[in-house]
Amino acid sequence: MNCPEFDKLIVSLACDTLASGSLRAQALAHAATCARCGARLAQQQMAAEGLDALAAQEQSIQAPAHLGAALLAEFERQRMLAAPQDAPSEPIRFRLVSLLNWRWATAITAVLFVVGLTAVLWRQPVRQTSPVQEEIATTVTPLPVNTSTNNETKMVAKISPKPKRKKTARHNADEYGALISLLPIVPSEAEEFQQVVSMQIPRSTLRLWGLPLDEESDNEQIRAKVYFSEDGVARAIRLHN
């Protein structure tokens, strides 16, 4: 074998895809006696060994823990949303909430709220909190994006409760505990929207979200209000007292 013939085979030789054992033996014999072709083959081996060493070292790299918690929360949320139509043998069709739907829902809620509040004020001049207002009683406080690579997390917004308001007969705010911020998530590109969902959640899920609960009674269901951002990820939670 000469150098031009070796050059034609080196890709398959380096990738170990040379089907013919005879050709492979001839190519290796040539590389053993020709400095130029031997160096080319050695290059390939050296690069491959370096890459394998890097691969072994990087085996320990994992996605940040908050990603898993946020995705599990999202899975749980979609499962809850799909539950009424759930048929045991049919796969659940997950639905990602579209921005358009949120905008419509927000607009309708705002109109209903204004109409309801006007009616209440007209009948009774005492200030009261409407059920709708109570249900969406959160504010979004933007925080600067943290671009530090050290903690590898990004805080976009945190949900904080509004100042205390008067209790109503239908919605007693004290039924639920303080608002607990869940782990930071990837920011959405659009304006922030929220939804509050009252649900029963297994203790095991709450532990996965980072809440300090013991492992006993993992299957026990706990009532909670979960606050979702516009991108459909749980941001905060209030546990039922």
Binding site: V11, S12, A14, C15, T17, Q43, Q44, A47, A48, L51
Partner: peptide
């Protein structure tokens, strides 16, 4: 295979 071969050549040069 062809890209892998070339990538290794470039890597070797860089290294």
């Amino acid at each position: 295979c062809s890209r892998l071969y070339r990538a290794r050549v470039l890597l070797a040069k860089s290294l």
